[in-house]
């Protein structure tokens, strides 16, 4: 029954690990009660939705069905959840306003990009990845992370960054989006049903950093203490 799935996992080990490694931070979130924190609660929602979408995509990929519509639709959802974490971390009204505006902006832009990149939306078999939305998402996420790092340095409220959960979350996201930002526009041309272009090792880099990102999330969540949060 799962032969095709196993075959897919064996043929694509790195991208498959990137799917299942999400279980690690998810489990830690539950055991460490990290969802008590508003930002980490959104991260938990992100991890749950990512795991579900990734498993469906893996299932579709292993059954030779085009799954890119899910990838495209996940862009505004993931951006809303991830940037929402920063909404709770920022203290300034301007930053909070920027986060909310960007969520709406990315949603509208992603929908437009899905239409722009696919002339015939009804034909799911020939569905293609968005051309700009993923890059825009990456640029905005990196901007939010850098803005947050600037806030950390300026406020000097966190004595030890290594034990601060959200710093690890930010580091993971920064690495993941940095690995993806140049590659994202090219995926529109390479991820087609009749793909002729193979990007080689470059194509695997985002998956490697997706795994690293999940590991860094796990480190951050592991550092979360409900007792400290209550204080």
């Amino acid at each position: 029954m799962f032969d095709s799935h196993f075959a897919y996992i064996v043929n694509n080990p790195i991208s498959s690990i990137a799917v299942f490694v999400t279980v690690l931070p998810l489990t830690l979130t539950i055991t460490r009660k990290a969802f008590l924190d508003k930002s980490l609660r959104l991260l938990f929602c992100y991890l749950v939705s990512k795991l579900i979408i990734d498993i469906i995509m893996l299932h579709l990929a292993s059954t030779r069905t085009n799954n890119l519509i899910l990838y495209n639709l996940s862009i505004p959802l993931f951006y809303a959840l991830l940037s929402g974490m920063f909404y709770f971390q920022f203290t300034g009204k301007a930053q909070k306003g920027f986060v909310l505006t960007s969520i709406v902006g990315v949603f509208v832009f992603s929908i437009w990009d899905i239409f722009n990149s696919n002339e015939n939306l009804g034909d799911l078999n020939e569905h293609r990845l968005v051309l700009y939305a993923k890059t825009v998402e990456g640029v905005l996420m990196i901007s939010l992370i850098l803005l947050y790092f600037y806030e950390i340095i300026k406020s000097l409220q966190i004595p030890n960054l290594l034990t601060f959960p959200f710093f690890w979350v930010c580091s993971g996201l920064l690495l993941y989006y940095s690995s993806l930002i140049f590659l994202a526009p090219f995926l529109h041309y390479t991820y087609t049903w009749n793909n002729q272009t193979d990007l080689g090792i470059t194509e695997v880099i985002p998956s490697i950093f997706e795994i690293l990102c999940a590991v860094l999330f796990s480190v951050g969540i592991y550092n979360f203490s409900p007792r400290k949060y209550a204080k």
């Binding site: 340095i153 960054l161 690495l175 930002i181 990007l199």
Partner: peptide, 30 residues
């Protein structure tokens, strides 16, 4: 392919440097 690989690696190197810088600078400021 090479251009993409180099660009991605450069971006990653920058990200690593940024994380290291934040940690170092924060420690120094404290």
């Amino acid at each position: 392919k090479w251009a993409l690989l180099i660009a991605s690696l450069a971006m990653l190197a920058m990200a690593f440097c940024m994380i290291a810088f934040v940690m170092y600078y924060q420690k120094k400021r404290f």
